[in-house]
Every structure is written in structure tokens, then in C-alpha cells.
């Protein structure tokens, strides 16, 4: 309780005000998120979902999914970056992410082969954006090499830049950068860890 400690007797007098109904904050928070969404002041809504490759952070603007983050990225740090790069008007709110959570569930269950979600690419620019826009064209269960993606994105010599674009993909899993592998067939790096990339490709090969 934020109270002046130089007057402990007053703190004691008012202390019972702390024992409010425990569910009140949760209820008020949900009411705030709903009202803010209605007034278009909730710029970014987020929630987390459990998945076979760990807990995923999902964040969406009014335009669509803006960020998917692995646990290793540190979800608090990811939200802080979103606050700095896009908007600090960020609230936990499950409802905007319900469709994404459902589609990811279906994907990890093997019953969904492509995502049908509006995407917001505001975090990506230039060549990286061209690469990301190409990736959904790599079909479920298939892979392309970094060189093939470079060619498809219009810069055949920009193989390393394709690697960077994949490594900084703000929407992993949904935008399938895990389907880009090295020319020699090895997995290549992955922001969520090589194990996660292996697990996704194994899921899609099943």
C-alpha cells in the first residue's frame, strides 16, 4: 500500500481498505481492455499461448497480427520494444487474439496447413519485407533454400540478407521462415532455436 511511512498509525487506520475483493482488479482490467478496443485506443493487444515449442507471445494491432515471440526472446522485452517502436498503448487482452490462438492450436494439431489471419507488417521494411511477403508461398511441408528465397524476392545475390530477414521475422510460425533451410539441407539458424525449427519441420513432414 502506498502510504506515508512517517505516519505508521495512519497506515494502520486505513489498512483495511486494502482488503478489497480480490477479483475486482481482474474485472476492471477486462472492462478497460474491452472499452479501449471499442474506442480504438487499444493499439496493441497481447496474450500468450502454450505450444509444443514453448510459450508463444501473440500481439496484434487493429490491422492484424504484428508479432509472435518465442519464450527465449523474453516476452517482457518484446513488449517493451513494441511500446517503443509502435505504441505504448498496450494491454493484455485475449479476445483480439482468439482467432490466432485457435489457428495455432489447429496448426500444432496438424489439422491446419495455412494461416488465415490478417497480418500487420509495420515492423518490417524494404527487402526484409519482400522476403517475408514471399515466405507464405512456400507450401506446408516444403522447404526452400536461402538462395531460392533470394531469387524469389527479386535479389538473387542477397542470400545473406535473406538469412537476416528470416532471423528478424516478427511473425515466426505464422510467416513460415522455418521453411527456409541451407542449400546443403541442414536446418540453419532459427530465432526460436534449432530444436524448434526441427520440431516444426517434423510436424509438417508427418
Amino acid at each position: 500500500m502506498t502510504i506515508h511511512h512517517d505516519e505508521p498509525d495512519v497506515s494502520e487506520l486505513l489498512a483495511p481498505l486494502d482488503s478489497a475483493e480480490p477479483g475486482a482488479m481482474q474485472r476492471l482490467h477486462d472492462r478497460l481492455a474491452a472499452a479501449a478496443a471499442e474506442q480504438h485506443t487499444l493499439d496493441i493487444a497481447y496474450r500468450t499461448v502454450d505450444s509444443p515449442i514453448g510459450k508463444l507471445l501473440l500481439a496484434a494491432t487493429e490491422r492484424g497480427m504484428v508479432r509472435v515471440a518465442f519464450e527465449v526472446e523474453d516476452h517482457d522485452a518484446v513488449l517493451q520494444l513494441l511500446a517503443e517502436k509502435l505504441s505504448p498503448r498496450i494491454l493484455f487482452s485475449a479476445s483480439r487474439l482468439d482467432p490466432a490462438a485457435r489457428e495455432l492450436d489447429e496448426y500444432f494439431a496438424g489439422t491446419r496447413h495455412r494461416f488465415d489471419l490478417p497480418l500487420d507488417f509495420s515492423l518490417s521494411r524494404g527487402f526484409r519485407l519482400s522476403v517475408l511477403e514471399h515466405l507464405p508461398q512456400i507450401a506446408y511441408g516444403h522447404t526452400e533454400s536461402y538462395a531460392q528465397v533470394a531469387l524469389a524476392a527479386g535479389s538473387p545475390r542477397a542470400v545473406r540478407a535473406v538469412g537476416t530477414a528470416c532471423a528478424t521475422n516478427p511473425l515466426p510460425v505464422i510467416v513460415p521462415c522455418h521453411r527456409v533451410v541451407k542449400s546443403d539441407g541442414s536446418f540453419g539458424n532459427y530465432l526460436g532455436g534449432t530444436e524448434a525449427k526441427r520440431a516444426l519441420l517434423a510436424l509438417e513432414a508427418a
Partner: peptide
């Protein structure tokens, strides 16, 4: 200091504002 996500403001100060 960069601005925090508003969610943290609600969590940190929400109970005080309610009191």
C-alpha cells in the same frame, strides 16, 4: 527512460487508483 507498455501502468497503479 523509454515508456513502458500501458499494461504495466495498470498493474502497478491500478490498486492504488481503485482505493
Amino acid at each position: 527512460e523509454p515508456k513502458k507498455p500501458f499494461e504495466l501502468v495498470v498493474r502497478e497503479h491500478g490498486p492504488m487508483v481503485l482505493r
